[in-house]
């Protein structure tokens, strides 16, 4: 289990992580979702014992990430945002290089390699240089390099950056297979369609965790109604006190009210051509994400 207790981290005046507490259970895929600059990478690096909290502490199993950083590192794999393989080494050489880095015993190494080849389908390419692999294959190799020492916990920072949809689907199938075998995975991603398939999501905004639940519960617990109006009268609605959220996208206004308009109000807007039509929108994870941008009404 990973136990994060009251973790804060600042860089100068910027509070990157603000009193974060989370418990991550074993054999789960937990997604960290938030805008650029919300503090995702900062948290991720602290979990990997690469930087230390200003306040609070993190335990991975019994180990403190500050006091026992070497024990922690031997239990984890970490794929940073722009993971760099050695392009002039072959797949096999890259894997062996990481095996040496992690100091895995020589005995059993070949078996582990074969397991990873089997699971990643990289065996036929073992002598190909990493620089000559497709984006999806590079991703699988990077993943394999971080699994060579059979970690219990895996940290992935935007692992599917620039990878096409088919390779992405294959990548997540591999991760889910590992989860089912007991691996715990903590991952940040800007792809909300991926996030929808994780076991739990932690929403992070301005360094704070706003929600920590299953994706379904995050969407269900959002009580506001969102309407889509065929209208470009942004300014008209932006002035209304009653409007909590307003966003213009491709000639339609997405809006939520603190109190839903009465039937007469809708009719007046329609009659006066303020809007040309409206319907209630089924709320998605993207809506929940977009609605966290509180300043959205005053924008544009």
């Amino acid at each position: 289990m990973i136990e994060i207790k009251g973790v804060s981290k600042s860089f100068g005046d910027i509070i990157a992580n603000d009193n974060i507490s989370l418990q991550i259970m074993e054999s789960e895929i937990v997604g960290l979702i938030g805008p650029d600059g919300a503090g995702k990478t900062t948290l991720m690096r602290q979990l990997c014992a690469l930087s230390h909290p200003d306040q609070g502490n993190i335990h991975i199993d019994a180990y403190d990430t500050v006091k026992n950083q070497y024990e922690v590192r031997s239990m984890i794999g970490y794929m940073p945002q722009r993971f760099s393989l050695y392009p002039d080494l072959t797949i096999e050489q890259n894997l062996l290089f990481f095996a040496n880095l992690f100091n895995t015993p020589k005995k059993g190494r070949q078996e582990r390699l074969e397991q990873l080849y089997k699971f990643s389908n990289l065996k036929p390419f073992q002598n190909r240089q990493a620089g000559k692999l497709s984006g999806g294959m590079k991703q699988k190799l990077a993943l394999s390099c971080n699994l060579i020492h059979t970690p219990k916990y895996l940290f992935l920072d935007e692992p599917t950056f620039g990878v096409d949809p088919v390779s992405r689907q294959e990548f997540w199938e591999l991760i889910k297979q590992l989860r089912d075998e007991g691996l715990t995975v903590f991952v940040s991603t800007p792809y909300l369609d991926e996030a929808n398939t994780f076991d739990k999501l932690a929403l992070i905004f301005n360094g704070k965790i706003l929600a920590y639940k299953t994706p379904e519960k995050i969407v269900d617990s959002y009580s506001d109604q969102i309407f889509v109006m065929q209208s470009e009268n942004y300014d008209y609605f932006a002035k209304m006190q009653n409007v909590k959220y307003l966003y213009l996208f491709n000639k339609e206004l997405y809006i939520s009210f603190s109190e839903a308009p009465r039937q007469e109000e809708w009719q007046t807007w329609l009659d006066n051509k303020v809007i040309n039509g409206y319907n209630q929108k089924q709320i998605t994870l993207e809506d929940v994400f977009l609605m966290q941008n509180k300043h959205i009404v005053s924008q544009i």
């Binding site: 805008p35 650029d36 213009l248």
Partner: peptide, 14 residues
């Protein structure tokens, strides 16, 4: 829009 968050992505599409 690689590597930017969903809000920034939507703004860019506008």
């Amino acid at each position: 829009t690689s590597g930017v968050d969903p809000k920034v992505r939507k703004d860019f599409w506008n």
